[in-house]
Each structure stands twice: as C-alpha cells, then as structure tokens.
Amino acid sequence: KKYKIKVYVKDKKTKKWKKIKEIEVDTKEEALEAIKKLPPNYEVKIVP
C-alpha cells in the first residue's frame, strides 16, 4: 500500500494554495518522516 504526500505552498500574490510536489512512500512512518523535513510554511496532505 502506497501513500502519496501532496505538498502545497501558499502563493503570496494570489493567496491560493498551489501544489508544488508529490512524494510517494510505502509506509505511514515514512510519510511522517518526510513531512518533518519540509519547511513549516508548507501545507501537506497524506493520501492513502
């Protein structure tokens, strides 16, 4: 079972969220580790 991490950042001009990358991992633990490495201003969604 794979997890997709969708990473969004808020556009300063439009104030809208835009997706900047998608990370695919195998476990939820890996997903949480990957999220920890991202800057705090990123919004993250984990999709099972």
Rank of each mutant, 00 (worst) to 15 (best):
K1P: 12
K1D: 10
K1M: 13
K2L: 11
Y3R: 01
Y3F: 15
Y3V: 05
Y3I: 08
Y3W: 13
K4W: 05
K4N: 08
K4Y: 12
I5D: 00
I5G: 00
I5H: 00
K6T: 12
K6M: 15
V7D: 00
V7S: 01
V7T: 01
V7K: 00
V9S: 06
D11V: 08
D11Y: 05
D11Q: 05
D11L: 04
D11K: 04
D11F: 02
K12V: 13
K12M: 08
K13Y: 14
K13F: 13
K13W: 12
K13H: 10
T14S: 07
K15F: 05
K16Y: 05
K16N: 05
W17Y: 12
W17N: 02
K18I: 13
K18S: 05
K18C: 03
K19S: 03
K19F: 11
I20W: 08
K21A: 09
K21H: 11
K21G: 06
E22Q: 05
I23M: 13
I23S: 02
I23N: 01
I23P: 00
E24A: 12
E24I: 09
E24V: 12
E24G: 14
E24N: 12
V25G: 01
V25L: 06
V25Q: 01
V25E: 01
D26R: 06
D26S: 11
T27R: 02
T27F: 04
K28T: 10
E29I: 10
E29D: 15
E30S: 05
E30Q: 13
E30V: 03
E30T: 03
A31E: 02
A31Q: 02
A31C: 15
A31M: 11
A31R: 01
A31H: 01
A31F: 05
L32G: 04
L32E: 09
E33P: 01
E33T: 11
A34C: 09
A34Y: 15
I35A: 15
I35D: 00
I35E: 02
I35C: 03
I35K: 04
K36V: 06
K36Q: 12
K36G: 10
K37H: 13
K37E: 10
K37T: 11
K37V: 09
L38D: 00
L38S: 01
L38Q: 03
P39G: 09
P39A: 06
P39Q: 04
N41F: 12
N41D: 15
Y42I: 05
Y42G: 03
E43S: 13
E43T: 15
E43P: 07
V44A: 15
V44I: 12
V44Q: 01
V44R: 01
V44F: 14
K45D: 04
K45N: 07
K45H: 07
K45R: 14
I46V: 14
I46Y: 05
I46S: 01
P48Y: 15
P48V: 13
P48A: 11
P48M: 15
P48S: 14
P48R: 11
